[in-house]
Design a protein around this nucleic acid. Structure first.
Lengths: 197, 197
DNA sequence: GTCTATAAAGGGATAGAC
DNA sequence: GTCTATCCCTTTATAGAC
C-alpha cells in the first residue's frame, strides 16, 4: 500500500518498515529497490538519500533488530532468578516477541546468508550472545539437578529453533490465541529439558 | 566446481545436483541460470533442453524431495508400533535424514515462498502429510497416557522445527558426531512430549 | 544436445534539475 | 529530499547453426 506525502513524516523510518515487510515476505534477493520505493510511494532513486545501498538497508534492519531483541530479552529474564524461572521467562518472552516482531525475526533468521562478510561479523556475535543466554540457563539448571539435558548447547539451539518456528504457522484469529500458544511452548520447553514440574 | 564433458553421463541429473546445492546456499532468487550452468560446465541456454524454466527446475527438486522423504519416513516408522517406539523412530529418522540430505531439506523448508500457486498446491499437501504423521503419533501417545502434550498440533510443529534446525549448525568433524546428535534430539523429543522414560 | 547470439525486461546505482 | 533520465549490467528465455 502506497503512502502519500501528507501521511509520511519520516521517510527513513517508513522505508525501514516497508523494506522489513518485503524482505521478510520475498527474501532480500527477491525484492528490488523499485519494489521498496513503490511500496512507500517514492521513486527508487530517493532511497539513496537515506541509505547508501541495498546492503546497508539490510544491515540497518538486522543490526537494530538484534539490539532491540537483546535489550528486551534482558529486561524479561531476571538474572538472579532460578533456572526454572529464567527458562520460563525466556521461553515466554521469545515466543511472544516472535509473534509481535515476526518480520524482524524471520529476516534476521533467514537473511544472514545475504550479508557480506563485514556485516556478518557484526550480526553473528549478537546472535551468539542471545543463544548463549539460553544455554547458560540450561547449564545452571543441569548443575543444580532440576534439568536433565544430554548436551546444553544442542538443546539450547533445538529450543530456539522450536520456538522461532511459531512464526511460520501462527495467525491471529486462528484456533489458538497468542497467550495459549506461548503457554504451550513454555510447557514443552520445560518438559524438553527434563524438568519434572 | 565445473564438470567436464567426459565425466558427465547425465546432464539432467547433474543439473539437479548443482541447482540443489546452489539454491540451498544462496536461495532461489539469489541464483541465476548462468550460475547453475557455470557450475555444471555448460552454457546457460543448454539448461532449457532439460527444464522448461527456472521455476520448473525448483518444482522438480522440491516435489521429488518430498516424495523421497515420505517414502523413507514410512519405511523407518513402524505403523503398528507403540507411540514411544514410533516417536523414537520418527525423530531418529528425521534428524539423520536432515543431515544426509540437508540441501534438499533446507530448500524445501525455505523456498516454499518462491513457488508459484500451482506448484505450491502440489508441495504443501505432501508437507502436511509428513507433519500429520508426527501429530498422530503424539495424539496416540496422549490417548494412551504415555505422552502429555497441551496441543498435539502445536507440539508436532515445534518438534519438527526443533529437529529440522539441526542442519543450521551441524558440521561433520565437529565436537559431536551424527549418532550422538541424533540421540540427543530423540531424548529431547521424548522429554518434550512428557514421556517419563 | 550444446553452442553463439540476441531479444526484452529488470537490476542497482548515479547525475543533475528543482 | 524528491524528481526524471540514464548508465551499465544481469536476468530469463528464445532462435537458429552445428
Amino acid at each position: 500500500m502506497a503512502v502519500t506525502q501528507a501521511t509520511r513524516t519520516n521517510t527513513k523510518e517508513t522505508l525501514r518498515n516497508h523494506a522489513r515487510r518485503l524482505f521478510a515476505e520475498r527474501g532480500y534477493e527477491g525484492v528490488s529497490m523499485r519494489d521498496i520505493a513503490g511500496s512507500v510511494g517514492i521513486q527508487q532513486s530517493a532511497i539513496y538519500n537515506h541509505f547508501p545501498s541495498k546492503q546497508h538497508l539490510l544491515v540497518d534492519l538486522m543490526e537494530s533488530h538484534m539490539h532491540r531483541l537483546l535489550d528486551a530479552m534482558y529486561r524479561a529474564v531476571e538474572s538472579d532468578a532460578t533456572p526454572v524461572e529464567r527458562l520460563t521467562q525466556f521461553a515466554r518472552f521469545h515466543v511472544k516477541y516472535q509473534l509481535e516482531e515476526s518480520d524482524d525475526v524471520f529476516l534476521a533468521y533467514m537473511e544472514l546468508r545475504s550479508l557480506e562478510p563485514d556485516s556478518k561479523a557484526i550480526v553473528i556475535p549478537l546472535r551468539n550472545e542471545y543463544e548463549r543466554t539460553l544455554r547458560e540457563i540450561l547449564e545452571d539448571g543441569a548443575k543444580s539437578g532440576v534439568f536433565h539435558v544430554a548436551d546444553a548447547a544442542v538443546v539450547a539451539r533445538g529450543l530456539l529453533a522450536m520456538m522461532t518456528g511459531v512464526t511460520v504457522w501462527f495467525r491471529d484469529g486462528g484456533r489458538l490465541d497468542r497467550e495459549t500458544v506461548a503457554n504451550t511452548y513454555v510447557t514443552t520447553a520445560l518438559q524438553a529439558v527434563g524438568y519434572k514440574g
